[in-house]
Design a protein around this nucleic acid. Structure first.
Length: 130
RNA sequence: AAAGUAGGCCACCUUAUCGCCACACCCCCGGUGUGGAGGAAAGUCCGGACACCAUAGAGCAGCAUAGUGGAUAACACCCACCAGUCGUGAGAUUAGGACAAGUGCAACAGAAAGUAUGUACAGGUUAAGCUGUAGUGAAACCAGGUAAACUCUAUGCGGUGCAAUGCCAUGUAUACCGGCAUUUAAGGGUUGCUCGCCCGUUGCUGGAGGGUAGGCAGCUAAAGAUUCUUGGUAACAAGAAUAUGAGAUAAAUGAUAAGGAUUGCUUUCUCUUUUGAGAUUGGGAGACAGAAUCCGGCUUAUCGGCCUACUUUUUUU
RNA sequence: CGGGACGUGGUGCAGUCCGGUAGCAUGCACGGCUGGGGGCCGUGUGGUCGCAGGUUCAAAUCCUGUCGUCCCGA
């Protein structure tokens, strides 16, 4: 299983991000919130993932960059949980909602739980659609 | 030895695994190689480079600076000297022009704070605030004090900023632009005002424009860095040599593991009269902080440590 | 990248332009009016004027730097 995180899997399009924030659903697992929304565009063949740390809670750029690196690292290590198991392609956005720094272990565990929850949610949506 | 002053420097290192960004090559699945944050990248307080704009011009206003000289692309920075203030001293610090142009202001105290001149005492005179002292206050006939009060003097300043600006694709349909004719005048635009300048109403004709999101260029080889020589008290300038090593755009430097060095704390042991020195065990600590067009300064944040010069005090020679 | 505003008792504000006494409302404490509450009246309490430096005889006020909060434009 690949553990790479190339540019094609990063969420960069402002249009997709706007749709994600206005129409997407969210899963909360303190201290991180996960926004997700299915991608309708057939030209996009991979999941698009981004991370975000609000400037309001962390004034210094160093702190924000560090947390974003940790979240990217944790997602890269654990994305096998969702990469091939989901039926649709999703736009994902991890948002750090706490006000103080966390260790890599805590963030990694949190990301794993979020990804498991995302899979459960999708399966329930599928049943409802049926 | 202790205390202190000034200036400069470093900003933990190595290896492995998994990853990120840029470039080059092989090849077009992918792989290999090279490189990849700072002294402040920060605050955005000054000064430039560069780009565009007659809505850019002229005058007034406004703003900035303020000893003298130098240096620079430029500056409020920097260097030298003079003067004031602080310090025993090394040194630090200063918006340091003009109140003999005009206007204003001065609480309390005091007779009186600017059209000055009262009281007491002493001196003095024909006489007289004519002379001295006292007391109040920051300041009391002296061309008074105050300009980080208005102001005056000298010098400088057009504006907007790389989201500048140029090009490409997508895409809507007359809202945009050019030319000609018509109207000749209400109105609108700009940096606060005046002048000036620009726009204008309708018709015909020609051209692709505006908003939104995206891509490419601008984009990093430079008033650059290191070393040496020469000139200069110095800031700095000139010359030579060397190597060239971030360019992202929801935004690249990370995570994990191991080892080593640094500092102080702690356990035990050894040496020493003591202060202390050496070895060892264990768990800690390593700051401030992340490039976004690029430079020269300023300011602020900063763990721990090193180097140089100098001053004062005490002791020894 | 650029522009602007504001920091004053526990809270919300004036005073800053034009320097000399820090004031108003509310809150809190005490007393009074009422049988009690509410309300009213009176007295009192409480402020390093964000921080540092400078100018001045004297600074919340003038000047410089700095910290924090908030807003706006491209």
């Amino acid at each position: 299983m690949s553990e790479t995180f190339p540019a094609s899997e990063k969420l960069k399009s402002k249009i997709l991000i706007d749709i994600l924030f206005t129409e997407g659903n969210s899963i909360k697992q303190f201290p991180i919130k996960l926004l997700y929304h299915p991608i309708k565009n057939p030209e996009i063949t991979t999941c698009k993932t981004g991370v975000s740390v609000p400037k309001r809670n962390f004034k210094k750029a160093v702190d924000r960059n560090y947390l974003k690196r940790l979240m990217r690292e944790a997602f890269r290590k654990n994305k096998y949980l969702v990469e091939s198991n989901l039926n649709h392609k999703y736009a994902l956005m991890f948002i750090f909602t706490a006000r103080k720094n966390y260790e890599y272990e805590e963030i990694s565990n949190c990301i794993i739980q979020l990804l498991k929850k995302l899979k459960e949610k999708e399966s329930t949506h599928e049943k409802q659609d049926d």
